[in-house]
Amino acid sequence: MSALDRSTVHHYAKLANLAFSPEQADVMAHELASILEYVNKISELDLSDTEPTFSTFGQGCHTREDRTEEGLGAEEALRNAPDKESQHFLVPKMIHTRELK
């Protein structure tokens, strides 16, 4: 198992859109390493001939008929928005453009 240190925590935190201070990352690394030690117990089993269970009882997923239904509507859908304008969600800018001369 890979060693879990501060930098590993920062790497996975980045993937999960989370940030930790160096001190928090150390604590988290310690806790995760200890949890992984326990969960590694499953590696005792030879599971090569076992199919994974993604859904119990093989019901699978079923879909509804493709029929238009009344949705929330823009006003309702925007009601919880932290920031909005007319019919849009507002967010901080995501693309940094170079100033045009």
Partner: peptide, 12 residues
């Protein structure tokens, strides 16, 4: 090793 094998344990 983790997710898929955990789902296999589930089958067992």
């Amino acid at each position: 090793g983790y997710y898929l094998n955990a789902q296999r344990v589930r089958t067992r």
